Amino acid sequence: MRHSTCLASDRFDPALELSTFLGQLSDEGGIVSFVGVARPTTRGGSPVERLFLDHHPRLTGRSLEEVAGAAGDRFDVSALRVVHRFGEVAPGEAIVFVAAASAHRRAAFEAADYVMDRLKTDAVFWKREDAVDGSHWIEPTDSDRAERARWSE
C-alpha cells in the first residue's frame, strides 16, 4: 500500500489534493475522500475567530504516519493520503483531507473513517479555539473516544 502524509502550515486546496491523488491511481474502483473544515462557532454557539493547532513537527508527523500505516495494514487499500493543517486556521478553511483508494468501495470507506477516528483522538495536536468570548483548548470528546473504540485492536 502506498501512503503519504503531509503537515501543512498554509491553506491547501482539497480539490487539488483529490485530483493529484486520482492521478496517481491505476485500476482502483473505489475512491473515498473526506474534508474537515474549521467550524464557524464553538460548541456553545459563540462565533470562532480562528482555530489554532499547535504541534511538534516530529511527533505529530510520526503520529500521522502511524495512523496512515495502521489503516493500510488493517484495510485492503492500495493508496492513502492524509493532509493535516497546523497553525492558524480560519473558519471555513480545510483542516484535514483524507483519501483512500481500493479495488472496491467498502475498504476505501472504512479506511477513511478509521483514519478520521484515529486523527481525532491519536494525532499529536493541541487545539485551541479563539472565539469572541475567549479562548479555550479543545480535547477529544466522549463521542470521539467512542468512535475510536469501534476500531479496538
Rank of each mutant, 00 (worst) to 15 (best):
R62G: 14
S63N: 05
L64R: 06
E65V: 10
V67T: 15
A68V: 08
A68E: 09
G69S: 08
G69Y: 04
A70Y: 02
A70K: 09
A70D: 09
A71H: 08
A71C: 10
G72M: 07
D73P: 04
D73K: 08
D73W: 04
D73A: 07
R74C: 05
R74H: 06
R74F: 06
R74I: 02
F75H: 03
S78H: 00
S78Q: 03
R81V: 03
R81N: 02
R81I: 02
R81F: 02
V83T: 14
V83Q: 14
H84F: 04
H84Q: 09
H84A: 00
H84V: 04
R85N: 15
F86V: 15
G87N: 13
G87V: 11
G87P: 13
G92Y: 02
G92P: 05
G92F: 04
G92N: 02
E93R: 15
A94M: 14
A94I: 12
A94D: 12
A94C: 14
I95A: 14
V96W: 01
F97Q: 15
V98E: 06
A99T: 03
A99E: 01
A100C: 15
A100Y: 13
A101T: 03
A101F: 01
A101I: 01
A101R: 03
A101C: 05
A101L: 02
S102N: 11
S102D: 10
S102R: 08
R105V: 09
R105L: 10
R105I: 08
R106F: 04
R106I: 00
R106V: 03
A107W: 01
A108T: 03
F109W: 08
F109D: 03
E110D: 14
E110V: 06
A112N: 13
A112H: 12
A112W: 10
D113I: 02
Y114Q: 07
V115G: 01
V115I: 06
V115T: 05
V115L: 02
M116C: 13
M116R: 12
M116T: 12
D117N: 06
R118Q: 13
R118D: 06
K120V: 05
K120A: 07
K120W: 06
T121Q: 00
T121F: 05
T121R: 04
T121D: 05
D122S: 12
A123P: 05
A123R: 02
A123Y: 04
V124F: 11
F125Q: 11
W126N: 02
W126Q: 05
K127M: 10
R128L: 01
R128C: 00
R128K: 06
E129M: 11
D130V: 09
D130Y: 07
A131T: 08
V132T: 09
D133Y: 08
G134Q: 12
G134R: 11
S135I: 10
S135R: 14
